[in-house]
């Protein structure tokens, strides 16, 4: 399996909940690498994935608290070994990293503050697609002084994506990702590129919806897409957002699937692992075609 790269995805922002782990953030920095590689602190779950894929273990001072959430963080199992931060400037002062990596969108004020006091902060773009992965991997490789490893990963990824990709025909099955509160993933999103690579048309993008935007329930019913991918409800804590997918009008649609048919966390951030999501969706499309469903 190819390892991780690039930045923050479209998933909902989750609250940092694992306070116990955070308590040790300041104490438990792993023994510094004897090498001269820069020590890094990642404040964003998507930069976490790139750091985990590329850095020497000794380089990593801490990761974002969300790195432990398997729904957002594909590498959550590896991430468990590292200290976590809450993205606070104070934590950065105390840890004194050589470089801070984070997203352009999240924690904007923190980024400004850190730059102001002279910390080197590298931000990675919010908008990501399958195509942006190799660039982000190479850039992170350069930042971490791990150019060779980054190049290997990026090349392997490019080859595999080319082999896997099957762009949709004009009459291909139309899919839509309908998340909590009726939000769809339109053009320009990682999910859009994943759907297309798997051979689906993205209905939301075709209707002119860009990014993460609300999509009227009526249009969903009228357009009757061949595949509707619904978000899985958050376990144990109800919300009205989660209840929308129980709406009888949605229940009447054909080919309802949960987004969870792709491996957990595989398409919330873009990285080499996102190919796992492409693979899962492609398998689904072939199964639908075989079953006469699409």
């Amino acid at each position: 399996m190819v390892r991780a790269v690039d930045r923050c995805g479209f998933g909902p922002r989750r609250r940092p909940a694992r306070f116990a782990a955070l308590l040790f953030t300041l104490l438990a920095a792993p023994a510094a690498a004897e090498s001269t590689l820069p020590r890094v602190m990642s404040l964003n779950v998507c930069t976490d994935q790139l750091v985990l894929a590329l850095a020497e273990p000794g380089q990593i001072l801490s990761l974002s608290a969300l790195a432990d959430d398997p729904d957002l963080s594909f590498h959550s199992a590896i991430a468990a070994a590292y200290p976590k931060n809450r993205g606070l400037a104070e934590e950065v002062f105390l840890a004194r990293p050589d470089i801070v990596v984070t997203g352009t969108y999240s924690l904007h004020n923190t980024t400004q503050l850190l730059r102001h006091i002279g910390t080197r902060v590298e931000t990675f773009d919010y908008a990501q697609t399958l195509e942006s992965v190799p660039g982000a991997v190479r850039r992170m490789g350069a930042i971490l002084g791990r150019e060779a490893r980054a190049e290997t990963i990026a090349e392997a990824y490019e080859a595999e994506l080319a082999a896997l990709s099957s762009p949709p025909a004009a009459d291909a099955a139309a899919a839509i990702i309908y998340e909590q509160n009726g939000v769809v993933l339109g053009s320009g999103t990682l999910a859009d590129s994943v759907l297309k690579a798997a051979g689906f048309r993205n209905l939301a993008a075709e209707r002119g919806y860009e990014g993460m935007v609300p999509y009227p329930l009526e249009l969903l019913v009228r357009d009757r897409p061949d595949l509707v991918l619904l978000a899985s409800p958050f376990p144990g804590a109800p919300s009205l957002a989660d209840q929308l997918v129980e709406h009888p009008a949605i229940a009447s649609l054909k080919s309802l699937r949960r987004k969870g048919i792709a491996p957990r966390g595989s398409w919330s951030c873009a990285g080499p692992f996102t190919l796992e999501a492409v693979r899962a969706l492609k398998a689904l499309r072939e199964e639908m075609a075989a079953g006469g469903e699409g």
């Binding site: 909902p12 922002r13 989750r14 609250r15 909940a17 909590q180 509160n181 958050f234 144990g236 804590a237 109800p238 919300s239 009205l240 957002a241 989660d242």
Partner: peptide
Amino acid sequence: LSPNPFASYEIIF
């Protein structure tokens, strides 16, 4: 306080 990430967006509702 709800652990569900969507709950806080429902204040306006």
